[in-house]
Nucleic acid binder design. Structure first.
Length: 485
RNA sequence: GGGGGCGUAGCGCAGGUCGGCAGCGCGUCUGCUUUGGGAGCAGAAGGUCGGAGGUUCAAAUCCUCUCGCCCCCA
């Protein structure tokens, strides 16, 4: 009976345990977050989905600025010769670059790349702008669109064009650049915890997974409910590779020319994909209050005789919540019944639903329902704003706690080859295992199990004395493996 | 890189083997009755069957070419 009721709530969404990818696509389309565009691999982010993006973008932007960074904007088009300067970078990105070869009727002398990332064009400008040690550090971020010609696409997770934020900084010393890269990693982690309610691991990428052209790539990794890891952010310590090829030099206090030390870092609209997967359930989307476009939806329950009165009171309720600083919305559409609205707002992930009908009015209460627990509470009308504020905070915390518990439960440790391979016959989540540190071994593990090293912890854990879970040789460190998106 | 599926009304699809009036469900619109977990009745609108060419008295259907999209596996 219980289960039947559960199913009745939503039609048209595939159950998560039946087909997770189908569920993911269904939620995106039914909640109107995005739609396929009539262009290969591209999507349209619809108003509701874009509202989520704006909320998380603004929250992140605030943190980026609070740490001394400024926003700027660089061109979409990058001349081929710029892109070709850093060899490893070029090799890494050329398979994915889209080109402009013609302007109007004129064939271009040099093709222009649609930026797959902006190091090339930004470094070119930094070479011009940076003259003296007094110009450093340069701390610039840009919000932009990116084009990467991916073979396989998936809404929000991998599309030909996507939105992101990319920070590009230049520093006087190696240490300062490393500190910057780590500071941003920390910032990303906190942001995902506090705003998105997504717990993450922070760590370093192995050589195999490093950003093309970087000295070191730091990563933020989350776990999806299907047991696959998703990289939700990266921060690169670029060293002096780019400085040397783009000739970004400055005059130090010692009156000598030095190359700058650089970082770059970014997160993308992929975060919305993570939000959907980490928190969603069979009823649809479940948004953490801090990024919910509608935090509290007011649904009036109207009957003919009391309609006018209830509607007026519902209106007043929504207004009062807005004044109290909540993103509240009155759903007074006449053409849908309350039951329909309940389902729709659950599907769209609104954290709180406030029902107001004649019985509530009579008793002086509002019937409040939490999206995350479906818990129903009769809240005294005069206390509703304060209650809603507190409850939204509680929901935010509870959602993080639930996701953290899942991450913890699905992080396992094994210390030998057999257990390791056995685990990866399924999708065990993160697996912590001893590793020898050799790329060929890592390649072989990837070939045989489909799992890759997602990260090595920032404080490497000594695994000497153990055998490598892959090749059986002498292990050096504990690495975290997972099958990834 | 390999494999598979699809293109017909806004959305989801049937029809295709066997050529013969362009269909169904949902949605939309109008009206009335309704409204505490996806309402009911009555009526209406909506089409270059992805595109081009061919066969035929006749093509969504058969043939050739072509464009596009999606999914799965590595």
């Amino acid at each position: 009976m219980e289960e039947q009721d559960e199913k009745k709530f939503v039609k048209d969404i595939c159950r998560r345990d039946v087909d997770f990818s189908q569920w993911y696509i269904d939620v995106i389309r039914k909640a109107e977050l995005a739609d396929y565009a009539p262009v290969r691999g591209c999507m349209v982010i619809r108003p509701y989905g874009y509202a989520i993006w704006e909320l998380l973008r603004d929250a992140l932007d605030e943190r980026i600025k609070a740490t001394g960074h400024e926003n700027a904007y660089f061109p979409l088009l990058i001349p081929e010769s710029f892109l070709a300067k850093e060899a490893e970078h070029t090799e890494g990105f050329t398979p994915q670059v889209a080109w402009v070869t013609q302007g109007g009727t004129e064939v271009l002398e040099e093709r222009l790349a649609l930026r797959p990332t902006s190091e090339a064009i930004i470094c070119q400008m930094y070479a011009k702008w940076i003259r003296s040690w007094r110009d450093l550090p340069v701390l610039i971020n840009q919000w932009a669109n990116i084009v990467r010609w991916e073979k396989v696409t998936r809404l929000f997770l991998r599309t030909t064009e996507f939105l992101w934020q990319e920070g590009h900084t230049a520093h006087r010393t190696d240490d300062e650049a490393r500190e910057e890269a780590l500071k941003i990693l920390e910032l990303y982690g906190d942001f995902m915890n506090e705003i998105l309610a997504i717990p993450v691991y922070k760590g370093v990428k192995t050589d195999r997974e490093r950003f093309p052209g970087a000295l070191q790539t730091y990563t933020v990794e989350a776990l999806m409910p299907d047991g696959r890891a998703l990289q939700t952010g990266t921060s690169h310590n670029l060293g002096q590779h780019f400085a040397k090829v783009f000739d970004i030099t400055y005059l130090e206090e010692d009156n000598k020319l030095h190359y700058v030390w650089q970082t770059s870092w970014g997160v993308t609209t992929r975060l919305i994909g993570a939000l959907i997967m980490v928190h969603g359930d069979d009823a649809g989307l479940k948004l953490p209050p801090r990024v919910a476009p509608v935090q509290a939806v007011v649904v009036p329950i109207t009957f003919e005789k009391t309609k006018e009165d209830v509607l007026a009171k519902a209106h007043a309720l929504a207004d009062e919540l807005e004044v109290a600083g909540l993103r509240a919305k009155l759903d007074d559409r006449d053409e849908y019944k309350p039951g329909w609205k309940f389902n729709e707002w659950e599907l769209r992930g609104a954290p709180l639903r406030l029902e107001l009908g004649p019985k509530d009015v009579e008793k002086g209460v509002v019937t409040a329902v939490r999206r995350d627990t479906r818990e129903k509470t009769a809240v005294p009308r005069d206390k509703i704003a304060a209650w809603a504020k507190d409850t939204l905070e509680a929901i935010q915390g509870d959602m993080l706690a639930a996701a953290s518990a899942y991450l913890k439960e699905n992080t396992k440790t094994v210390d030998n080859h057999d257990d390791f391979y056995l685990l990866f016959e399924g999708r065990p989540g993160f697996v912590r295992a001893p590793w020898c540190g050799e790329t060929p071994c890592e390649d072989q593990i990837a070939d045989e199990t489909g799992a890759t090293i997602r990260f090595i912890p920032l404080e490497p854990e000594d695994a000497r004395g153990k055998d490598c879970a892959g090749c059986g040789g002498k292990a050096k460190v504990w690495a975290y493996f997972a099958k990834a998106y």
